[in-house]
Amino acid sequence: MIAVRNLHKTYTRNGLGLKGISLTVKAGELFGLIGPDGAGKTTLFRILATLLLPDKGSASVCGLDVVKDWREIRTRVGYMPGRFSLYQDLSVKENLTFFATVFNTTLKENYELIRDIYVQIEPFKNRRAGKLSGGMKQKLALCCALIHRPDVLFLDEPTTGVDPVSRVEFWDMLHRLKKQGIAILVSTPYMDEASRCDRIALMRNGSCFTTGTPDMIRQSFKRPVYSIRSDKMYQLLGDIRSWTGAYSCYAFGDSHHLTLKDNAPDIANLETYLKGKGYTDVFIHPIEPSVEDCFMELGND
């Protein structure tokens, strides 16, 4: 449904953009774009949604070329940009009617597709979009993006600023939409959401580093990872980093994750080292890397 081949786009202002991205997304696939600010995620969305022209390379959506067939593509895709996709001064109902009219359809015509989501925002249908809370705004924006029954959905950080409960609900919805055969391309800064994608691409500086299922990406992680806890967590972070065998160490909630250098001494050496520094209750055990570990590693290479 989406095919991107060696896509380039350079912004003269800051040198950011895309530096040769290639990827494909199938019908009914939930594909995640994971990358830091400035990685090029939004640029890719805007090119695929035919709002921006690429400098080089090609891309097609639903088999249509993003440069030549932009008019046709726009009727076949739903796009939820990071910000300002709704009219803040219009009510929930008015926003839906507006988007339906633009796509020459009605709320009724594709009601089945949006019903699950619509019933949650229906109690607020007369409220202005600007007065909705974060989670509700995102549900309304998703409804608006779906109103013309698109074959492809582009979602640019749909859950940023949304609380953990609403995020889980939002992703449950995406899984139901995917079952209807819609191809979904979604970007997110939340690594737990990356794990809920069929495949993900890790992006940085306009390039795509790895593409694969979350499991494949976890398995390709080369270094051993250990989870470490003790009494003084913040101080511990600095001390682990100073240990000779440490390649990297980051806080992960209630523990720190340490990755080892190629020629690191035995892990027992770390325990002795930390006890020597006066730590008590040191708890070290090996763990499987998470997608977040893999992502952090990108920053070190």
């Binding site: 990358g35 600010d37 940023t160 600023g161 800064p189 806080a251 952090m296």
Partner: peptide
């Protein structure tokens, strides 16, 4: 107020070090 909203994992951690 949500100082790390939408921020990638590496930058989020750097920010928490500033907080500490």
């Amino acid at each position: 107020d949500e100082p790390t909203g939408g921020v990638d994992p590496v930058t989020r951690r750097q920010f928490w070090e500033l907080i500490y």
